[in-house]
Computed example of a mutant assay.
Amino acid sequence: MAAPLSIAFFASSLVSAYWNGAATYYRGMVRALSGLGHRITFYEPDAYDRQAHRDIEDPEWATVVVYPATEQGVFRSLEAAGGADLIIKASGVGVFDALLESEVLRLKRAGTQVVFWDVDAPATLERIAGDPRDPFRALIPLYDMVLTYGGGDPIVRAYRRFGARDCIPIYNALDPDTHFPVPPAPRLKADLSFLGNRLPDRERRVEEFFLSVAGKLPNRSFLLAGSGWQDKERSENVRYLGHLGTGDHNAFNCSSRAVLNVSRDGMARNGFSPATRVFEAAGAGACMITDRWDGIEQFFEPDREICVADNGDQVAEILERLTPSVAAAMGTRALARVRAHHTYAHRARQFQKIFAAGPVRRAYLGGAP
C-alpha cells in the first residue's frame, strides 16, 4: 500500500448539500480515501447559508474547517493547509475562487503537490475558452494535475490544450453505506420523479424532458424536488417539494416508478459525465430514465439497466409502457452493476494509484501533449 497522504481539500461544502450538488461526491471520495488511511482536512467557507442547512455533522473520517467567507478567512486557511502532502482546490467553492486558485499554488514545496479538481469541467472550459483574459487560463499549467469528476476524453483533450500537465477523470460513484434500497414513502410516490436544483444550464432540458412530459400525460403523477423551482410554471400533476435533504434521497429514489436524470447543457454536449444522482438512484435500486449522452454504455447497459431518451416524447413513451415489474427488474440490474463496478471504493483506489508514485514528474512542454 502507498504511504498515507495528508490532504488539504478546499471546496464548497462537505457537511451541507444546500445549493451544493457536489456534496455527495465529496463525501463519497473523502470517506473512501479515509478508509485507505489518508488524512483529509476539508476547508469550506461559511457561505450561502449552507451551515444552517447541514445534512451531516462533522464526520469522523475528515477534519472539517469552516472558515469565514472573507479574504482573511481564506488566507488563514491557506496558512493552516501549508505542509500537507497534497493540496486540492476544487472548482465552484463559491466565494474567492480566483483568489484560492492562485494562492494555493504558493503552497507548492518539495514533496507537496497542488491539484485542481474540477467538478464542473464543461462549464469551466467554456468559460475560459470564451475569455482569453480569464486569469485561470495562465494557472492551469502550474498545477501538478487536473482531476475532473467526468467528461472523458473530450475534457481531457481540452484541458491539455490549455496546458494541463495531465488531466484524469475520477467519475461519480456510489457510497453503498449511504445510498441503498429502503421501503417506499407514500408522500414521495409518483410515476416519474426528478431531483435537481434550478440552474440556467439545466432549466431548458428539464422543461423538455420533465415538465413537457407532465403536460402530455395528465393522468400520470410527477414529483419535482430541488431548490429554485417554486415559481416555475408547471402542470397540476407536478408536485413540488423544494429542497430535499440527503437523508430523504433513498426514499425519493425508491418511491417512484421511475427516476429521471437530466444532464446540464455542457455535460450533455461533452458526454461521459454521469451525474451523482445516477449512481445514487441505481444504489437504491431505482428504475432510471436518462437523457442521452455519449458514454452511457461505459456505466450502464441501455434498455437493460437504464432507459435512454432523446427527447420528451421518448420519455413519455417509455413511461407509458413501463410496468411495475419491468421497472423493478431494471432497478435490480442497475443496483448489481453499480455495486460491482462503480462505488467510491473503486474511485479511491484509482486516486491512490494516481498518486502512489509520488509527485507528478511529467514536464510541461506547452500545448497539447
Rank of each mutant, 00 (worst) to 15 (best):
A2T: 13
A2V: 11
L5D: 02
S6I: 07
S6C: 11
I7E: 00
T24W: 09
Y25H: 15
Y25A: 12
G28D: 02
M29I: 12
M29N: 09
G35N: 11
E44P: 00
P45C: 03
D46A: 01
A52W: 08
H53Y: 06
R54K: 11
D55S: 00
D58Q: 14
E60S: 15
V64D: 00
P68S: 04
T70G: 03
G73T: 01
V74T: 01
F75E: 14
F75K: 11
S77G: 09
A80E: 13
A80R: 14
A81G: 05
D85Y: 04
D85M: 05
L86M: 07
I87T: 03
I88G: 03
K89V: 15
A90Y: 11
S91M: 06
G94T: 00
G94W: 00
G94Y: 00
A98F: 11
A98M: 13
A98V: 12
A98Q: 14
R106Q: 14
L107C: 06
G111L: 03
D118G: 10
V119R: 11
D120T: 09
A121R: 06
A123V: 14
R127D: 13
D131H: 07
D134Y: 07
F136Q: 12
F136G: 09
A138G: 11
L139V: 07
P141I: 03
P141S: 06
Y143K: 07
D144P: 07
V146P: 06
G150I: 05
G152A: 07
I155Q: 10
R160P: 09
R161A: 14
R165L: 10
C167P: 06
I168V: 15
P176K: 05
F180R: 08
P181N: 02
P183S: 09
P184Y: 04
A185W: 11
L188T: 02
L192A: 05
S193M: 08
F194S: 02
F194E: 01
R198I: 09
P200A: 10
R202E: 08
R204M: 12
F210R: 03
V213I: 06
G215E: 12
S227H: 14
S227M: 13
K232Q: 15
K232P: 07
G242L: 04
L244G: 04
G247E: 11
G247T: 09
F252V: 03
A258H: 03
L260Q: 01
N261S: 13
S263F: 12
R269M: 08
G271F: 00
S273E: 04
S273T: 14
T276C: 12
R277N: 07
V278E: 13
V278F: 10
A282R: 02
G283D: 05
A286L: 01
A286Y: 00
A286P: 01
C287S: 08
M288Y: 02
M288E: 05
D291W: 00
D291R: 02
F300V: 03
R304N: 13
E305T: 06
D310K: 12
G312Q: 02
D313E: 14
V315K: 01
A316G: 10
I318T: 10
E320W: 10
E320D: 14
E320R: 13
P324N: 05
P324K: 07
S325K: 14
A328Q: 11
T332D: 14
R333T: 08
L335W: 06
V338Q: 02
H341C: 15
A345Y: 10
R347F: 01
R349M: 14
Q350M: 15
A356R: 11
P359E: 02
R362C: 11
G366C: 08
G366N: 07
G367V: 08
G367I: 08
